[in-house]
Design a binder for these strands. Structure first.
Lengths: 371, 371
DNA sequence: TTGAAAGCGCTAACAT
DNA sequence: ATGTTAGCGCTTTCAA
């Protein structure tokens, strides 16, 4: 597009400046220009100065394509996401763009829009453009696509976990801390009877969450009641099913933590249908902070992971893989969590703390309700 | 990164497949492979078949860098935005990604984050990567940067308008239609006394809006009352100032349209402080549908432009410039608008239509009411 | 219609 | 420390 390229001959008038122009202008060889630009330390100070001067006088920018072609390094990273209009992603992209650009990388965004075709197109685009690594920030990417990348030795990072491999790293979300934040929030409100709906027990990340829950209970000096612990499957339906079983119990907990938001939202639905009020009768807390969490009624208190951490960890991990991380065992890339207090948590029903019923007022945009 | 490149000799084991591998496999010359891939029509059908077969058997992807280097076409487009976490942009990006990818382009996103430095970094990145065009989707990009692009013959499109030039196109937002939608919405509710707060009269886009307002009034058979028409400046403060003046008038309009949302939000603030209720006492309607519009109290009814239109127009315009748009005068790229009915508009105070006062119930998010 | 070969702008080996 | 030069993988001329 840029400019109509005439055949080859007439050295078109507005051709881009190239390294030879700079060399000529600075009266050095093109090799010296290249070395200067790449900060090879052996270049004579004076020559280097001449080169830099020429560069700025001519306003020369090196041609990335040519550099990439010869060096094999594109300084391009792929970011595979599900849908950019899902508010989780813009924040993530922002962090990723920031750190990538700081380090001289560009990012190629591939949205799958939940379509298998778009997904494979995205992977294809990344391979064609020779990305130096891919951050897979969405679930459900088909195995063959990942193999395609792996077979071409493209480093990958996954949120949470992915197929293991030499060039593959999981990002470690700090579930322990996240769950702890949730449990302590409930403890502070005065809850001692806590229930839990887990994710599928085969999934590593949900095992971690369950373990963290139990551990957090211990920290607040509460003995878990096995009756109140259910195994869900991280779906809305799973959450509903578990909540129904729970409601059949003779004694109910005053608060329930769920292994993810979808589970909590399913649970919420059942609670509401059963005529129980959240949080007046029972408090509910999720995990993930998906978009929907803010829009259910009442808005869900939940634990979210830092998009910025995620972005920086993904970048760092990709870079470390690529540069072979000479020193010792692979580093772990942690992602921190934070509690997002909305309106699905409040004092327990019979608590002395409760002004009457409902959520206590808190500062800022945290849950707040005049009773 | 991708893979540790050993010096040059040992033809590293896991080098990428290249066109020669395909040529060998298909028993043709690399020229034929190239022609086949580029769908040059003169290739013999049978040879072409062999080539395609080889390509798919080897799972070959052409190297974009090499192609770009020799052809001078990167198939890369720059998208200059202010901030990706502003919800205006993800939608825009989505549309842009869709159409770009459909056409074999990639997009390079540059966020300015309202920092002059980031802005020039973004422009620099685009030039370095040799983008074939830039869609400038944010205001306030500094002139020198645009000149930098122009001097390198990079085609540009601007939302609404930008510095004119041979390789520059404005996108034309259909203000007339947008304003009309707003005015008719008010007319349907029963408003006949309409006020207007314009933008700065030097700015072309606000002239267009004002003209459209007057025209729309005529269409609904209302004679404009010059007393109720104020010139704002598209800022919050301007909106407040105008609204204060308006409130000093002996007779007030029942509804006010503003040239943009910030103006309306400023106006809303003054109205609220003056103890007037919106929309019970006075209806208010903005233009743009900025993020904030949804979160003010009451949420602002406004006119928004289609992000998808914007994206597609930007892409189309860029492409047309680049391909020199052989046929006649440059095409116009229109962007449509739509009315977003929220809660700042309702029946006029003394309307027989009003059930009591306040907003009529609406179905969906569109205006529509049973009278 | 096909193939051989000349570059695209740059980096890095090699020579000096 | 600097210059010369051979490619990187491809497209496109040119000759056959």
């Amino acid at each position: 597009m840029a400019i109509k390229k005439r055949p080859r001959q007439p050295k078109s008038e507005n051709r881009r400046l190239d390294i030879r122009d700079v060399a000529k202008h600075a009266k050095v060889s093109i090799a010296t220009v290249s070395r200067t630009i790449n900060r090879v330390p052996t270049v004579d100070k004076e020559l280097a100065d001449r080169v830099w001067l020429a560069i700025s006088e001519l306003n020369y920018f090196p041609n990335t394509q040519a550099r990439a072609l010869v060096s094999g390094r594109t300084r391009l990273l792929g970011l595979l996401i599900s849908e950019i209009t899902n508010p989780f992603f813009p924040e993530l992209i922002r962090g990723f763009e920031d750190i990538a650009v700081e380090n001289g990388y560009e990012i190629l965004i591939g949205s799958t829009n939940y379509h298998p075709e778009r997904m494979s197109l995205a992977v294809r685009r990344m391979i064609e453009r020779n990305v130096e690594g891919v951050a897979v920030m969405t679930f459900g990417v088909e195995q063959p696509l990942l193999e395609e990348l792996a077979s071409r030795h493209v480093p990958m990072v996954f949120v949470d976990s992915g197929p293991p491999g030499d060039l593959v790293r999981p990002l470690l979300v700090d579930y322990r801390k996240g769950i702890q934040q949730g449990v302590q929030h409930l403890a502070v409100l005065g809850h001692r009877k806590l229930g839990y709906i887990s994710g599928p027990s085969q999934q590593r990340s949900s095992q971690l969450r369950t373990a963290a829950f139990l551990e957090s209970l211990e920290q607040i000096g509460v003995t878990p009641n096995p009756e109140w612990i259910f195994e869900g499957d991280h779906t809305l339906e799973g959450g509903m099913r578990c909540m129904e079983q729970l409601l059949a119990l003779p004694e109910l907990p005053t608060a329930i933590m769920c292994s993810n938001d979808m589970t909590a939202i399913g649970g919420l639905r059942v609670l509401t249908r059963a005529g129980l009020r959240v949080p007046e009768d029972i408090s509910l807390i999720g995990f993930d902070d998906i978009h929907l969490a803010e829009f259910v009624n009442p808005p869900l208190t939940t634990v979210r992971m830092s998009r910025n951490d995620l972005a920086r960890s993904a970048f760092g991990a990709l870079r470390a893989i690529a540069e072979q991380e000479q020193g010792g065992h692979p580093r772990e890339w942690k992602v921190t969590t934070s509690l997002v207090v909305r309106q699905s948590t409040g004092y327990p029903r019979d608590s002395a703390l409760a002004p009457a019923a409902g959520t206590p007022s808190t500062k800022k945009k945290k849950s707040s309700k005049k009773v």
